[in-house]
Write a protein that binds this DNA or RNA. Structure first.
Length: 854
RNA sequence: GCGGGUGUGGCGGAAUGGUAGACGCCGGGGACUUAAAAUCCCCUGAUCCUAUAGAUCGUGCGAGUUCGAGUCUCGCCACCCGCACCA
């Protein structure tokens, strides 16, 4: 036996090259094997791979490699979600081209991924900024346009007047642009929309079929879609107009004591036209903040318009208020106020002294029970409600809706929270929207789609980012084209598509990549749905909902037969680390600023930490997600340099359950590095000539084969890891025998999806393990399981008395209850515990325990 | 406010209602070595103790069901995540 060490710096690259050369992980759609599509959310090429990526892809990788071992033809692709704002930000800050910056990042990150040895089919790699990709996306967009799923309308946006660009809601901080700091304006712009609301019901219904999605994600999408049913009806107003309102509680209609409309409701606008105080109130409403904290504390404010609304049943005149808590973009932008049974209405009525009537009570006898300072939104029986008295809430709802419909003054309706998807972005680095605005007099041909044979509409390269605004808009030539219809002068659409469209169909393009169309439905059908999709929970709503929508929309267009793209979804936890910081006073003694330090800059010992450079202490902060801004990051390249790819992969899979956060620790990765060497020594210690059987070890081996397979399929990698540690310990202690060699060979195969480089190295070094085959362990089959060996022939029986463990005994498996009882009572420890007490009852669970009750 | 999740040693975490703490990390002791690194072995929930043994307590808190509860039921508490004036 030689005392060698496994050297990742030699082996890792060697085997990565061997897999590349052999095309080991290239997926063949014509293979007769059953198919399995394993996919991790593709990365945005931001610069470098971080530990979160490593964890995400390590999980998918183990599954992909495992599936191959189980005889599946596996599709495990990788690509780049390459359009987006960071590239344009870099362009502005560093005066580089977004494309060049992105390509450079892709190159860096691809090299990093290759160093980790992921089993990816690089033949199918693409970046969404490739004209070949976004050209097909433009074609799909036109297909959706033809199917009536794309439209254009004027819509309000957040406009940054300094950067001259539209901001997403999350880019508006305290009413100011996140980059420029300028006061954000509301502007009306013509925007493109995708009709996702047409599929609201399908998308909601479809959630019910996604049994292998986390409950949490399904609930989040359900809430986002936000289906509600109720009554829409119109009040007759004192000024002769009609006021449509929507309510989910038509049963409480007799409790209505006012109406409230949104500040930007047309009626409010018309009132403001002749009443400056109304106008002032509306302006005040618009100034109100929209943050969670502000909303929570915001007082309910109203402005009495002097107009009244006639109650449809009682005929009573209800005052109509403009109110700050009514939203224009939900329902009709107007509500009937029922203070007794809606908390907002209650607060409003209390402030303005409006009647608060009880129309629902737990019992008819409680009809006049006062309210305890808040509205009662719960179920009960109707009271003080004329013909509804005594009915249940549900019956009363149905009754009111029926009467409204019969009287033709209202309609039972469904209202959705989901809005159509605005996909226009006034930016350069995205998919150009393939439309042309005809500029002929009298409106000309209007908005004309780019003919498909002129796709792709490519981005111009010669753009500058030193002037604010959309570079496409001010490019000297790009937008000037002829109208495809009349040939007259026309202009290209200069908006680009939201980057979420890029990630809404990439999984189809991975499965099938013809040149002449986006994908081949037959090829797609071979691979999809994705068997296991893995990514961060931050995509629970937008990306995952949009991808589901696109799949259904393409199905609607007749391009696909698939409704749901991802059969099973897994959302993994983050990689976390403590933060190190110190307050510095660079801006003067009264202006402390927190400066963060990377773990590499810090000496960490016991309770304290100090900076390596000056030896002075730093503050140790909470364990949080690794992020550049908090500098609590560990670079995968450094880790691989020190410990090798396998140790890094192993650490990502160990200890923490995959859905939970994984705290990075130096000690943890060191331990993994040691385990790699420990396994290597074990592999080296095998004695091919050893003979003889070790039944206990054989059992352990087979039990581990079964358990690790179950654990990997359940994505419980931490448990699989623990099992492998156990078998490793047992094999190390065992004397040389054929059984021990089998155990070692088993470990080699079981760890091969997790530590593929070490496994290849050992596999090729040990002839006996390969059993004559020249192949790679990456092509080896999962070890065969001997079911008979899963069962123990002897079991340990626990003996309890007074609910506590008193003794354990060993008995043959399947021993009779009477025998177990006798053995238990014969135990000296049990007798001591019994201390002569009378045995009233004995409970025997075969092969498990004996419980003596006195 | 609504919805969801989590809570077990010093730490990460295991446990079909049936021996709580598997496995790993940290720590302690020992072996090997001139020494160190590496490696190997042993110990490692708390308390008591007449200490190779034994007893009591122990899975956020309080009740309950059960022969038996980390696990099931009810009521609380804390923390985390998502949504949020959605009528």
């Amino acid at each position: 036996m030689t005392d060698t060490r496994f050297d990742p710096s030699q082996s890792d690259g060697h085997w990565q090259l061997a897999w590349d050369k052999a095309g080991t992980f290239n997926a063949d759609s014509n293979s007769p094997k059953p198919k399995s599509y394993v996919l991790e959310m593709f990365p945005y090429p931001s610069g470098r791979i971080h530990m979160g990526h490593v964890r995400n892809y390590a999980m998918g990788d183990v599954l992909a490699r495992y599936k191959r071992m189980r005889g599946f033809e596996v599709l495990h692709p990788m690509g780049w979600d390459a359009f987006g704002m960071p590239a344009e930000n870099a362009a502005m800050e560093k005066n580089v081209h977004p494309g060049g910056w992105t390509r450079q990042n892709i190159e860096t990150m691809k090299a990093q991924l290759k160093r980790i040895g992921f089993a990816l089919d690089w033949n199918r790699e693409f970046a969404t900024c490739d004209p070949e990709y976004y050209g097909h996306e433009q074609a799909l967009f036109l297909d959706m346009y033809e199917a009536g799923l794309v439209y254009r309308r004027s819509s309000e946006v957040n406009w940054d007047p300094v950067d001259m660009t539209v901001l997403a809601n999350e880019q508006v901080i305290d009413g100011k642009g996140w980059r420029s700091g300028a006061e954000v304006e509301k502007r009306k712009l013509d925007q493109w929309f995708l009709k996702i609301t047409q599929f609201a019901d399908d998308l909601l219904e479809g959630l019910g079929s996604l049994d292998d999605w986390p409950e949490k994600v399904r609930l989040m999408q359900e809430n986002w879609i936000g289906k509600s049913t109720g009554l829409e009806f119109s009040f007759d107003l004192s000024n002769g107009d009609k006021l449509p309102v929507y309510t989910t509680r038509p049963d409480t209609i007799f409790g209505s004591s006012f109406c409230a409309i949104a500040a930007d409701h047309p009626l409010a606008q018309s009132v403001a036209a002749s009443d400056p105080t109304a106008l002032e109130f509306i302006e005040e409403c618009k100034r109100g903040g929209t943050t969670a904290a502000e909303l929570e504390t915001a007082e309910k404010l109203g402005f009495d318009t002097g107009i009244t609304a006639q109650h449809p049943f009682s005929g009573e005149a209800l005052p109509v208020f403009i109110a700050n808590f009514v939203l224009m973009d939900y329902g009709t932008g107007a509500v009937m106020g029922v203070p007794g049974h809606d908390q907002r209405d209650f607060e409003f009525a209390t402030k303005y002294g409006l009647p608060i009537a009880r129309v629902v009570a737990s019992d008819v006898a409680d009809a006049d029970k006062p309210f305890a300072g808040e509205a009662e939104a719960g179920d009960g029986l109707l009271v003080n409600s004329d013909f509804l008295d005594g009915k249940s809430v549900a019956d009363a709802k149905a009754d009111v809706i029926a009467r409204a419909e019969a009287g033709k003054w209202g309609q039972g309706t469904t209202v959705w929270r989901l809005r159509d998807w605005g996909i226009s972005r006034q930016r350069y680095w995205g998919t150009p929207i393939p439309f042309i605005h005809c500029a002929q007099e009298g409106g000309g041909c209007g908005v004309v789609p780019v003919p498909k044979d002129q796709l792709p509409v490519t981005l111009p390269d010669d753009v500058d980012f030193q002037t604010p605004g959309n570079p496409l808009e001010r490019h000297p030539t790009w937008k000037h084209v002829n109208c495809p219809k009349c040939g007259g002068t026309a202009e290209r659409e200069t908006d680009t598509l939201d980057t979420f469209t890029n990630s809404s169909w990439y999984f189809l393009r991975f499965a099938s990549q013809p040149d002449d169309r986006p994908f081949d439905p037959e090829e797609v059908a071979k691979w999809l749905p994705v068997e296991q999709y893995i990514g961060g929970v931050e995509h629970a709503i937008l990306h995952l909902l949009y991808a589901r929508f696109w799949t259904r929309a393409l199905q609607h267009c007749g391009l696909l037969t698939l409704a749901e793209p991802f059969a099973s979804l897994f959302t993994q936890g983050m990689v976390t680390h403590e933060t190190y910081s110190r307050d510095v006073y660079d801006d003067g003694p009264d202006h402390p600023r927190t400066r963060f330090f990377t773990p590499a800059e810090v000496d960490r010992g016991g309770e304290s930490a100090s900076l390596k450079s000056d030896g002075a202490p730093v503050d140790i902060g909470r364990v949080i997600k690794m992020s550049k801004s908090k500098k609590n990051v560990v670079d995968p390249d450094n880790i691989i340099d020190t410990y090798g790819a396998d140790a890094a992969r192993w650490f990502m899979l160990s200890d923490s359950p995959p859905e939970r956060d994984l705290p990075w620790s130096e000690a943890g990765i060191e331990g993994c590095g040691r385990f790699v060497q420990r396994l290597w020594r074990l592999f080296e210690s095998a004695d091919a000539a050893a003979r003889g059987e070790d039944k206990t070890l054989d059992r352990k081996s087979h039990q581990t084969i079964a358990a690790v397979a179950d654990d990997i399929e359940a994505l419980s990698f931490n448990k699989a890891v623990a099992r492998i540690y156990e078998l490793t310990g047992a094999a190390e202690k065992a004397a040389p025998s054929a059984s021990r060699n089998f155990a070692i060979r088993t470990i080699l195969l079981l760890v091969s999806p997790m530590m593929p480089h070490l496994a290849e190295e050992a596999w090729h070094k040990a002839d006996w393990a390969r059993a004559g085959s020249d192949g790679l362990i990456a092509d080896a089959a999962w070890p065969e399981l001997d079911e008979a060996l899963l069962v123990e022939d002897e079991v340990t029986i626990a003996i309890q008395h007074k609910g506590k463990l008193r003794d354990t005994i060993t008995a043959p498996k399947g021993a009779a209850k009477e025998d177990l009882e006798a053995l238990a009572l014969a135990s000296e420890k049990v007798q001591r515990s019994l201390d002569g007490a009378e045995v009233r009852k004995v409970i025997v669970v075969p092969d498990r325990l004996v419980n003596i009750v006195t």
